[in-house]
Write a protein that binds this DNA or RNA. Structure first.
Length: 943
DNA sequence: CTTGGCACGC
DNA sequence: GACGTACGTGCCAAGA
């Protein structure tokens, strides 16, 4: 095990310089003397970012300006084809070396060796001495020597974001089992070095497959005659270049360098030298941030010295377990060897006989907390069948009860277990227990006790990132569970079915799941407390689980015939528009292909000489681009019609009917409670949160969502301007609050203020602009985004924004405060205490930091609104149960709730829903919360 | 089978 | 002074 306190970073300088240079090439930094300083700037930016983010204890910058090396000399092609670096890139190198040295970081260079070789050799030496080593490069190299305490560190395209790969990640990335095979992969694929092609036509997947079969590149080449078809031919033909590529990619690890602790330790920076270089290169902002404006000691009485980072910001305490709960990837556990089922004591019982079952039930009835998990035939809970149930209440011990494939027998079994399911004082623990609830509901059973969902718990204290059970187990229990793929095969067409797996095998897998989940619950309870999100979890997220399960179970009715007719009508209109386009263009092509359309519009018809291109080089044909071309040619209107109708037809009219559950005849969406970091829900299979509403033709789709029969209606209730109300509340802006208290049209009121006119004189356009600004605040948009949205100039939009901030100065203050809070704590909070992490808020990269800052503004607003509607859903669900109504909650769309209501309950439900929505969460500063409701036979009429 | 482009809602 | 600008879901085309 390595010493966590010794972090050595080795930078492949030339690779970073090249990338910095090209990353900024479209926006060159030209100094007053006409020099391009892209490379210097980009490199320094990455360096500073890395130091601030990773806080290395040791560091070296490795150069290979004295390469090419001996091994390159054999390859005349390589030398001949190697492109000369641009002059301004080459001339940047001395500057960069000066900058690096002003940081007091050593530059290492050795005649005849590439940086890879030097870095590799140093890495191995230092790793053997107990250092954790990070080899920093934007390239793919190094994979072959990544091992336990050596990692690859890949800075993002322009600094800011980054990626850290250990042995495991590298293997995963390349699809191989052994990290030593990386070099063979590079040989096969040939992108180790420019211009050495490897074997053309062999991609990552093919290469990994070949290596899995033959082990090494040499073996593959020897066996080329036995490899069938085109692939075999290609391999035989590419032999030479594959070997060449491999040789070029091989890292030499016996370079004559030595690692000396003292030479590489991070030391004080040489400020005089640094400021001189920065002045020369005209890095004013960077200089100011790194060198200038060091804050005075906060408090003379507070004698504790405050460590400052390169920007003069105080360095936070080192990461401890409490901050780890905010998504810190713990590199050092990642590299550990995990325990697994074969070396961990466990007792997993198979419950098969009646006697076993009775014994199990008797024991279970004694328990207060039971972990519960179902095994089924599929991932869609509304269609799957039960294969077995597992339970655990003691670490290392679990029970698995298999089911037969006869529904009646399964129900009989569940009937026997129902004494448990209906017991009120059991806490049921599960990972994504909504799924298990749905399974039970489909057999007519329900859990009466309380719930604890480990997945939701994890989401509550760490909303970002993944939370699959296997992952959580490895991270929090250092235990690697049996993978489902070992039972039913790899994902994809060939994947088998749980039902076909031997019961003894399922038992081990299923019981282990319950066992692990139980242990996760024990781990997570203190973490919830530590992260101060107990209220969020116990009052909002966890109680929402059964509510969502019930909503998904109910589903919503769909008028399939209506959609079928509508689809036909759309089809006709699409054909018409398509024909028009072909006539006007004078060619037949696939209008659904953006690539072909771009070629027709811009190459053939030349509608815009300076047409924008996408990053892959094809013409951009998005809606915004087309809108700007509308007055140039009437073909554009037909294209827009085609686009709109095709979307409606394929995504909605044709797809939704396919999602109708054959058993219930209804649509059962799945709400995901643990995806969106701000706390919103997401919906899929199908996504019912993006049903069209803006255009007339789109709105028609909503007519297909209908109430059960003539005795029912859909009731839709939505919050009015909820996010702006949250803005008013958290900012305490007096005039905005007053506008809400006076029940004004908020956008009109805003326009009046911004344009300095009486409310009744606000024009349509002024209101529209004001609305866009309000909207922009909520989404954290910038002046650019606003201008883009409104089709006005950037200066004009900036003026509007400036006026807005003058009139609503508290809103501006809130935004600044929120960013400051984010910088200080590394996260921002919603009203219910949900914490949203802001990893990049102190980034030296303006784009990256700007993004984090917008999140800091937006997340508390959107997240608090999400908190509110979640609380409302729980309250409403409880109130509906208490009132014993027949009505059902069926959908949630961020600020709207939809219910299916029998006619005789309409008035009751309207009052119940609106009242509970409005009182779910009291906003600060007495900002009123308003919910409005409507009913109708279908979703459109209900609005 | 993966990716890129596009479009829908909030 | 240029960067490049909410998120999540899902469809289709294109190229391996």
């Amino acid at each position: 095990m390595s010493d966590n306190n010794k972090k050595l970073f080795l930078l492949d300088a030339m690779a970073l310089v090249y990338r910095a240079y090209y990353a900024l090439i479209r926006s060159p930094r030209i100094t007053s003397k006409g020099r391009n300083t892209n490379a210097q700037f980009g490199f320094t930016n990455t360096l500073v970012d890395l130091i601030n983010k990773e806080r290395p204890t040791h560091m070296a910058v490795v150069w290979d300006t004295h390469a090419p090396t001996e091994r390159h000399i054999d390859f005349t092609d390589y030398k001949a084809n190697r492109q000369e670096a641009p002059e301004d890139l080459m001339s940047a190198i001395p500057d960069i070396k000066r900058i690096v040295e002003s940081f007091n970081i050593p530059c290492v260079e050795l005649d005849g060796y590439e940086a890879d070789d030097i870095v590799g050799t140093l890495a191995i030496e230092a790793a053997d001495m107990g250092y954790t080593v990070f080899m920093v490069t934007p390239d793919k190299d190094y994979g072959q020597i990544v091992r336990e305490n050596i990692y690859m560190y890949k800075p993002g395209f322009k600094g800011g974001t980054f990626e850290i790969l250990g042995e495991k990640e590298v293997c995963e990335k390349w699809g191989i089992n052994n990290v030593n095979q990386v070099i063979d992969m590079l040989g096969l694929m040939g992108d180790a070095v420019d211009n050495i092609p490897g074997i053309p036509g062999v991609g990552e997947k093919t290469a990994a497959k070949l290596l899995a079969e033959y082990g090494t590149l040499e073996n593959i080449l020897d066996n080329a005659p036995h490899i069938k078809g085109k692939l075999g031919e290609k391999i035989a033909a590419g032999k030479e270049s594959a070997l060449m590529s491999k040789k070029l990619a091989t890292i030499i690890t016996n370079v004559p360098v030595e690692f000396h602790e003292e030479n590489f330790r991070i030391k004080e920076k040489n400020e005089a030298e640094m400021s001189a270089v920065f002045a020369e290169l005209e890095f004013r902002t960077l200089a100011k941030r790194i060198l200038g404006e060091t804050p005075a000691p906060a408090n003379a009485a507070d004698s504790k010295p405050v460590a400052l980072d390169l920007f003069g910001d105080p360095i936070e305490e080192p990461v401890t377990s409490s901050t780890a709960s905010f998504g810190q990837i713990d590199l050092f556990t990642e590299a550990e060897n995990f325990k697994n089922i074969s070396d961990t004591a466990h007792q997993y019982h198979l419950v098969q006989s009646e006697e076993d079952l009775q014994h199990f039930i008797a024991q279970a009835l004694q328990q207060k907390e039971i972990c519960f998990d179902t095994e089924t035939t599929g991932t869609d809970a509304m269609q799957a069948e039960l294969v077995g149930l597992s339970f655990s209440w003691e670490k290392g011990e679990a029970f698995y009860i298999p089911c037969t494939d006869k529904e009646a027998e399964v129900k009989e079994l569940l009937e026997k277990l129902n004494v448990l399911f209906t017991k009120e004082d059991i806490l049921w623990i599960g990972q994504n227990i909504k799924y298990d609830l749905l399974m039970l509901k489909n057999y007519g059973f329900d859990l009466k006790g309380k719930l604890f969902d480990t997945m939701i718990a994890h989401y509550s204290f760490e909303p970002e990132g993944k939370r699959g059970m296997d992952l959580l187990s490895m991270r929090y229990l250092q235990y690697e569970p049996v993978s489902i793929e070992t039972l039913i095969g790899k994902k994809g067409k060939g994947q088998g079915n749980m039902r076909d797996v031997e019961v003894e095998l399922i038992k081990e897998y299923a019981a282990e799941d319950a066992d692990i989940t139980l242990q996760l619950k024990q781990q997570f309870e203190p973490l919830l407390k530590e992260a101060e999100v107990e209220d969020l979890f116990y009052k909002v997220e966890n109680p929402l689980v059964p509510v969502l399960a019930q909503m998904e179970f109910e589903g919503v009715g769909l008028d399939v015939d209506f959609l079928k007719n509508y689809s036909d009508a759309l089809g006709t209109a699409i054909k018409e528009a398509e024909q028009k386009v072909y006539e006007q263009a004078g060619v037949q092509f696939n209008l659904a292909s953006p690539k072909q359309l771009g070629d027709v519009l811009f190459d053939k018809m030349k509608l815009d000489e300076k047409a924008k291109k996408t990053k892959t080089g094809q013409y951009a044909t998005g809606e915004d681009v087309l809108q700007k071309l509308r007055n140039k040619h009437e073909i554009v209107d037909s294209i827009l019609v085609f686009r709109e109708y095709s979307k409606l037809k394929s995504t909605y009219a044709d797809s939704l009917p396919l999602m109708v559950n054959p058993k219930t005849g209804r649509i059962h969406t799945s709400f995901n409670q643990s995806v969106v970091v701000t706390g919103r829900l997401s919906s899929n299979n199908p996504n019912l949160q993006n049903i069209p509403i803006k255009t007339d033709m789109g709105r028609e789709i909503r007519k297909a969502f209908k109430a059960f029969d003539d005795n029912h209606v859909l009731l839709s209730a939505d919050y009015s301007q909820i996010e702006l109300r949250v803005v008013a509340a958290v900012s305490g802006d007096v005039s905005m609050i007053q506008a809400f208290k006076d029940k004004k049209d908020i956008h009109r009121a805003t326009a009046a203020k911004v344009y300095g006119v009486p409310e009744e004189e606000v024009t349509f356009e002024q209101r529209r602009n004001a609305k866009a600004v309000n909207f922009g605040i909520i989404y954290g948009q910038s002046a650019f985004g606003l201008a883009e949205n409104l089709g006005i100039s950037r200066t004009e939009s900036k003026e509007i924004i400036d006026n807005y901030f003058k009139e609503y100065s508290s809103v501006k203050k809130y935004m600044d405060d929120s960013i400051a809070y984010g910088k200080k704590h590394g996260y921002v909070k919603t009203l219910m205490g949900r914490k949203i992490k802001l990893a990049d808020i102190n980034s030296s990269n303006q784009t990256v930091r700007g993004f984090a800052e917008r999140v800091a503004i937006n997340a508390p607003i959107q997240g608090s609104a999400a908190d509110m509607i979640k609380l409302a859903m729980i309250k409403i669900s409880d109130a509906m149960k208490a009132a014993n109504v027949k009505s059902r909650m069926v959908l949630q769309v961020h600020d709207e709730l939809v219910f299916e209501v029998p006619l005789n309950e309409v008035e009751l439900m309207k009052a119940l829903v609106v009242e509970n929505m409005q009182s779910a969460l009291t906003l600060p500063n007495d900002v009123p919360v308003i919910a409005e409701s409507g009913t109708g036979r279908n979703w459109l009429d209900a609005h």
